[in-house]
Every structure is written in structure tokens, then in C-alpha cells.
Amino acid sequence: MTDNTSAATAQTETVSQAPTFLPPADIYETKDAVVMLLEMPGADPQSLNVTLDKRTLTITASAKPFAPQGYTLVHAEYEDGNYERVFTLSELVDGDRIDAEFKDGVLRLTLPKTTPSPAKKINVRAA
């Protein structure tokens, strides 16, 4: 599995002022699926977008800025922004059966593997 982030970010240009973050990911593989866990704290579930184009898996989301009325930010260690990450899958994945669940700020993607089609023997006609 390859991470195409640098290539992807070079092509896209962000219009909004909000910064774009690379969500840290855990990826593991079981017998019949590839499971990905991406940390996206504060991401709006409505904005979550997971697309699989051939073997390119793109995950984007954005977090609504948190700004309580009557309060001023006095100390900041993190920022609200957008999340984006692109992966190239090496396994053949069944795009119709991808399961995505967003819980407690972590997106869990389950990508079921497709059964490899059996090798087909081609008969050669002798001319």
C-alpha cells in the first residue's frame, strides 16, 4: 500500500483558509479484508468523503471550527481544519462492499478483498 499524499497535495489547491492535515492511520490486513483506522478528531460526519477510483482511495473530511461565544482562545496546541489522505491499494478490493464507520473521531474502513479470478486457460488453435 503506497501513500500518495505528497503527489496529491501538489495537485490540489486549497481555497479555504483552514489548514489541511494528514490523519494518522493504522492499516492491518486479515484473511478477507483490509482494515484502515484514521484519526480525524472533530471531523463533521456530513463532510466525510471516501472514494475509491480504481486503486486510489481518497479520504477527505473537514472539522467545523469551534468558537464558543464570549470566550477568547488563550492557549492553542491544535487547530481545526480539513483532513485529507490518499492511498494506493495493492490488494484488489471490492469497491461495492466497503464499510465505513466514524466513531469517537476515528474513521474505520473495512475493505473486503475480492477473490482472485481463477487463471483461464486459452486454447491455441493450430493453423
Binding site: P68, G70, T72, L73, V74, H75, E77, Y78
Partner: peptide
């Protein structure tokens, strides 16, 4: 990481 907001 934390953010701290202070108000009245």
C-alpha cells in the same frame, strides 16, 4: 493537545 478558551 489542548486548546484553552477563557471568558468572564
Amino acid at each position: 493537545p489542548v486548546n484553552v478558551w477563557v471568558g468572564a
